[in-house]
C-alpha cells in the first residue's frame, strides 16, 4: 500500500505495475474535450519547488486539476524561504493549513524523505538533488511499455551525465525491478563513484554502450550542478557523446530515443534525432500527466480494496 512516493528503489514492483496500469487507463481522459473527473474533489495539493521546473510542476498541477483537486504552487524563490524559514517549518506550516498532499522538489538529496517523515499526509518526491525523480522514471517506463509492449528483457542505455542525474537513478531502480537491463553510458568523469556497486552495465564508449539497445535515453548535461574540469569542452562532448542519427545505426532498428527534458539541442542530443520518428520525447510529456494522476489517485485514496 503506497503512502508516499519518495524513491523507486524502495517501491515494490507490484506498486510500480499498479501505477503504470492505472496511468494507462487514465490516458483516455487527456483526450476528452472536457478534461475533468470528480475523484479528488475537495482535496488540496501543494507543489513546493525549491528548484526551477516547467514540465514537472505544470504536469503535477494539471494532473491534480483534471482529478478535481485544488492546487497551490509555492516557488521557494518568492516565498518565506527567502526569509530564512527551514524546509521542515515550511512543510509543517503548509500542513497546518490542512493541505492533503505535498509535491516537492529540492536540491538536497533526501529532502523529500525528511519531509515525508515529518508529515502525516502523502508526500511525492518531484526530484531531490542527485538522488531520485520517481515520477519521471514511471512516465519513462510507461512510454517504453507503450512502444515495446513490455519492459522485461529490454536493454535500456542511459547516456550522458549520469553523476548528476536523479532521472538515471530512478530509472535504474524502476527498470531493473521490472526486469529490464540498464546500461550507463558516459565518460568516466560523469559516472558516479559508486557505480560499480549498482546493478548496471557501465560503458565508457558511446557506440559500444548503445549497440543493440531497445531504448536510448539521453540525459541533459547539468552544467548548473557541475564542478569545473569534468568536461574538456561542450563541442568535444557533443562530438563524442551526443546522440545523433549516425550513432544510432548500431542500436536495434526499432530503437526509440527518449530525453527527460529540458533538451540542450546540439549538445547531448542532435536535432536529427530529437525531431525524428524515433523520438518519443513529447509522448513522455503526455504520459507524465497520466502518471501523476495515477500517483495522486493511489496516494490520496482510502484503504485499498477490490
Amino acid at each position: 500500500m503506497l503512502t508516499d512516493l519518495i524513491t523507486l528503489r524502495e517501491t515494490e514492483p507490484e506498486d510500480i505495475r499498479l501505477l503504470l496500469d492505472t496511468a494507462q487507463s487514465f490516458k483516455e481522459i487527456l483526450e476528452r474535450p472536457v478534461k475533468k473527473v470528480p475523484t479528488l474533489r475537495g482535496r488540496q495539493v501543494v507543489t513546493l519547488f525549491y528548484e526551477a521546473s516547467t514540465r514537472t510542476r505544470v504536469s503535477f498541477e494539471n494532473a491534480a486539476k483534471i482529478m478535481s483537486a485544488d492546487t497551490t504552487s509555492v516557488a521557494a524563490a518568492s516565498s518565506s524561504v527567502q526569509k530564512g524559514e527551514s524546509l521542515l517549518d515550511t512543510a509543517r506550516n503548509l500542513r497546518a493549513m490542512r493541505i492533503d498532499c505535498l509535491v516537492m522538489r529540492h536540491p538536497q538529496s533526501g529532502a523529500a524523505h525528511l519531509v515525508a517523515q515529518a508529515l502525516d499526509i502523502p508526500v511525492v518526491n518531484a526530484g531531490d538533488g542527485m538522488h531520485e525523480h520517481p515520477t519521471q522514471a514511471l512516465l519513462d517506463m510507461l512510454t517504453i511499455r507503450q512502444h515495446k509492449g513490455r519492459l522485461e528483457g529490454l536493454t535500456v542505455a542511459i547516456v550522458g551525465d549520469i553523476t548528476h542525474s536523479r532521472v538515471a537513478r530512478s530509472n535504474l531502480w524502476g527498470l531493473t525491478k521490472m526486469g529490464a537491463k540498464v546500461r550507463f553510458v558516459a565518460p568516466a568523469t560523469l559516472l558516479p563513484r559508486d557505480v560499480h556497486r549498482l546493478p548496471v552495465e557501465v560503458y565508457t564508449d558511446l557506440r559500444k554502450g548503445i549497440e543493440g539497445a531497445d531504448v536510448v535515453m539521453a540525459l541533459r548535461l547539468q552544467q548548473e550542478r557541475m564542478e569545473r574540469g569534468l568536461l574538456p569542452s561542450l563541442r568535444e562532448y557533443s562530438q563524442r557523446w551526443g546522440v545523433n542519427a549516425k550513432a544510432l545505426e548500431v542500436t536495434k532498428p526499432d530503437c526509440i530515443v527518449m530525453h527527460p527534458g529540458p533538451m540542450n539541442r546540439g549538445v547531448e542530443i542532435a536535432d536529427d534525432v530529437a525531431d525524428s520518428g524515433r523520438s518519443v520525447i513529447l509522448e513522455q510529456v503526455t504520459n507524465g500527466v497520466a502518471i501523476r494522476m495515477a500517483v495522486l489517485y493511489h496516494l490520496l485514496g482510502g484503504e485499498a480494496s477490490a
Partner: peptide, 21 residues
C-alpha cells in the same frame, strides 16, 4: 470505467482500473 466517479473513493479506493472507450 466508473472508478473515478464512485462515491466511496475515500474509504475504498479501487486498484483495478479499466479504460473508458
Amino acid at each position: 470505467d466508473i472508478t473515478l466517479y464512485r462515491d466511496d473513493y475515500r474509504t475504498h479506493a479501487v486498484s483495478d482500473i479499466g479504460a473508458t472507450h
